[in-house]
Design a protein around this nucleic acid. Sequence first.
DNA 1: CCACTAACGCAAACAGTTAGCTTTTATTGG
DNA 2: CCAATAAAAGCTAACTGTTTGCGTTAGTGG
Lengths: 190, 190
Amino acid sequence: MSRKPMVRPGGRSARVQQSVHAAVRELETEVGRDALTVPLVAARAGVTPSTIYRRWGDLQELMSDVAVERLRPELPPEDLGGLAADLTAWAEHFLEEMSSSAGRAYIRDALLGDPDGTNAGQCSAYAAEQIETILSRAAARGEQAPAVERVVDRVVAPMMYRILFRPGTETLDAGYAARLVESLLATPGS
Amino acid sequence: MSRKPMVRPGGRSARVQQSVHAAVRELETEVGRDALTVPLVAARAGVTPSTIYRRWGDLQELMSDVAVERLRPELPPEDLGGLAADLTAWAEHFLEEMSSSAGRAYIRDALLGDPDGTNAGQCSAYAAEQIETILSRAAARGEQAPAVERVVDRVVAPMMYRILFRPGTETLDAGYAARLVESLLATPGS
DNA sequence: CCACTAACGCAAACAGTTAGCTTTTATTGG
DNA sequence: CCAATAAAAGCTAACTGTTTGCGTTAGTGG
């Protein structure tokens, strides 16, 4: 979903893509992320290495594609009946997922093999969608809600920054996420 | 400065490190980032490839080391006589440097070949140092200054998030940096 | 000044990558 | 529905980057 024109999405191409993605996920749990190679994935997927090289370019771009799939939220955020509760719960959940070693690995992979930034943009879009849902609900209730951009700047960005640039910092608990949301909602204006 | 114990920092080891780093910088301008390979760098540096593989592991970790060096600020932030002016000027400068294509490439490299997060932490520390200097000056003047952590969360993190996750977004100008600082200083409390 | 050992050079074996060509198979138009 | 077309995959061989064992060099500490 990043480099290939995908001009022929049906039939065999689709099957190959699915089997290759499946092979990556399987092998990742069996032999570990670092032991993955293109020939290994190709063998498991039942294709030749050159097929993978031609469609994805290299292992990093393939891993980036798979990582983005894994970072896609599968459920809409929970509705707890209020903006503060919804946002806090979502932020805590987001932080817990992303700051785990698995989550961090996926974020790294997504950023890594992403020359044009398409996959990174997709990750950001996922978070924005979830937030949008929460804010729309709040507006429907008549609550005064901030803009999505503000939530991203004040809640998502600080968490991501700490995950990426300050590993080992132990302040990455639910309390931190809650404080970010609280601080955001305390100043309705700018 | 990331993986090697550097138990023997003097003499030959230091010379090799310098010539390898210099070779990377030279070749980067000559043939471009994407054309760099370990054997190429080794030849330019006058060492054998195995030396690089043993000390750095792979090309990514080497590039990460070099990138961190380039991201180190060479000057302390300018003193304009006031906290708001100092922070705004610094944030604008920071954003301009980091959002350039060269800056983004260095950030990516620094994050990329960094298994334990040491280099990423170093980047974060550089920014924190600069901010610390500005805040200390403000305190010396008797101005009320926020904590470094707050500046990182409210100013640095949002800029970095947009650089990494939202490429192509056109709101990465000086005005954005200024607004972040303004918003931060508008709420002295939390 | 000598013993010790980390780090480097060298070279061969290994593994991942690239490229040319052939074959298969969606797709498109008659 | 069938033929023509071209995209995508298979195959294989050449290529290039990576790993590893061993001998040598040169800092380090006694």
